[in-house]
Design a protein around this nucleic acid. Structure first.
Lengths: 161, 161
DNA sequence: CTTGACCCTCAACTTAACTTGAAGGTTACG
DNA sequence: CGTAACCTTCAAGTTAAGTTGAGGGTCAAG
């Protein structure tokens, strides 16, 4: 079949299919005398497999190294190992996401838990110091002089401000 | 302070800090007579805040629209809303990851659950047909003729093969 | 013979978030 | 004075996974 029909059957674009070929995911494609690419039916499966693997989080690079030249001759051990690795990777990502989410939720709570008698500015400082885990100094003197403490620590190789 | 010390204090690279400035995250930076950038101490906080927000999944674009010109004057409502949106986004991503992970685990099981009396080729077909949710025809005749069924459905505008 | 639907190649563009490099000014030390 | 450690700008490179466009063949119908 021509690339147009393959595209229709798989839902991919022409350019994407050609790109996969150039990326080495599609092993030498046959040509008709006029130069048109011609594909065997299995190619539909291969492309669907690629798309599925991508959705599962595999990069094209990973997919290329795992895809066998022949759909029925998988490198069994490497495949199983890659699947396990990917599961672990997803797990790690989930852990990070759990943390991020918890942090965001905590932040929301904290912002909304402003004591009635506290003004917004003070609350901003309070929240800020909490999320960054450090003291946030309140600007005391006329703004513009903050950080203008020159000549402190004349130790070699770098000045402060 | 100079960019070098800011970099040391935040753990970011010089180039990254300059990049943030050019990306509009750092509002006009003061210069010394010699052209060197000079930063007030708060910049350390701003940069740490940016890094933290990034870790939580915010893009620089999002961060820019949320960062107030002044660290103590947040756009409260927009911020809260953005935080809620991000939490929801993370939730959606987690759902997708759960699915991917489950699919991968199922795939591993399936590959390893090959009946003793089935050969690898047949198992590959079985597994393949399961993950793609369709029948995978076994190659019957001499390979090379598969998909060469011409002239079926002569419907206008595109030929098969 | 023209029109329209196909197909081809190859280079350049896209996005995000930076990095790298070239070319050069500034400052401090010895 | 040299040199090392700073700092400057600006352009171009990086990665992934494609997309877009220019310029040009092919093929069947009317």
């Amino acid at each position: 079949m021509n690339i147009g029909e393959l595209a229709r059957r798989t839902g991919l674009t022409h350019s994407r299919i050609r790109f996969y070929e150039s990326a080495g995911l599609l092993k030498t494609v046959d040509r008709r005398p006029n130069g048109y690419r011609t594909y065997p039916v299995e190619t539909v499966l291969v492309l669907e497999l690629i798309a599925t693997a991508q959705r599962a989080g595999f990069s094209l690079d990973e997919i290329r190294t795992l895809l066998p030249p022949d759909l029925e001759n998988w490198r069994h051990d490497a495949l199983i190992e890659a699947l396990h690795r990917k599961v672990a990777e997803i797990g790690a990502l989930q852990t990070r996401l759990d943390q991020s989410k918890a942090q965001l939720v905590a932040l929301i709570d904290e912002i909304e838990a402003k004591p009635n008698d506290m003004d917004c500015t003070a609350n901003a400082r309070r929240v800020l110091s909490n999320i960054l885990g450090k003291e946030v100094e309140r600007p005391t003197m006329t703004a513009g002089d903050v950080g203008r403490r020159d000549k402190i620590k004349p130790g070699r190789a770098h000045k402060t401000s």
